[in-house]
Simulated assay, not measured.
Amino acid sequence: MIYDPLKVAIELLKARVPDVPVSGDLVGHQTGSPRVAVSLLNISAVIRNRLDRIRLDVHAYGPAKNAALALAMRTRHALLNQSINWSYAGVAIADASNDFGPQDISDRTSREHRFVVSLDLYMYLRS
C-alpha cells in the first residue's frame, strides 16, 4: 500500500481543528502562538496489503500551559472520536487508539509550552 499517512493525519486535523495551523513541522511558526505539529513514528502492517497501523506523535503548542493542554485534548478528541471512517485521497481510517499522553513536554529549543499525544491510527485504502 503506497500513500502518505502523515498527510492523511494532517488533513484530518485541519478539518477537525480548523482554527489552528496544523503541519508536519514548525516552519513559519511564531513562538507563543497555537500550533499543531504531527510526527510520523512508525508504520506497521497489521493485515498485509490491507491495513496499516500508523503511530503518530501530535505536538500541541500554546501561549500558556493550559492553552497547550486544551489544544492537545482537542486534537486527541478529533483523532480518537472523529476520525473513524473519515477518508482523504482514497485512504480511510478504520480505528484509533491513544498510546499515551497528553504529556507535558516543554520544547527544549523554543522553551514553549507543549503537550505531546501519541496515537495509533489504523488506515486502509478504499477500493
Rank of each mutant, 00 (worst) to 15 (best):
Q30H: 10
H29L: 06
D4Y: 03
V27G: 05
F100N: 12
V8N: 13
Y3P: 10
G28F: 04
N49A: 14
D107S: 01
I84S: 08
D25M: 00
E11D: 06
L56S: 02
K65F: 07
V91H: 00
Y3C: 05
L119R: 04
P5V: 02
R53F: 05
S44H: 01
V8W: 15
A60F: 06
A94L: 12
A96H: 02
I105S: 06
G62T: 00
N49P: 07
L41S: 02
N42C: 03
V91P: 02
I54H: 02
A94W: 12
P5S: 03
S87D: 10
D25P: 00
S23G: 09
V91I: 13
N98S: 04
Y122N: 03
T31S: 03
L41N: 07
I93D: 06
Y124P: 00
R114P: 01
V58D: 07
P63M: 01
A45G: 13
S97F: 11
S106F: 08
D99K: 03
S127H: 13
Y61T: 00
T31C: 00
A9Y: 04
Y88F: 15
A68S: 13
L121D: 09
V58P: 05
A89E: 15
R35Q: 09
F100W: 12
D120E: 10
D104H: 05
W86Y: 14
S44D: 12
A67M: 08
M1H: 12
P63R: 06
Q82A: 13
S87F: 02
S33M: 10
S110Q: 01
V58Q: 04
S127D: 15
Y61P: 02
A94F: 09
I93A: 02
V116H: 05
G24D: 11
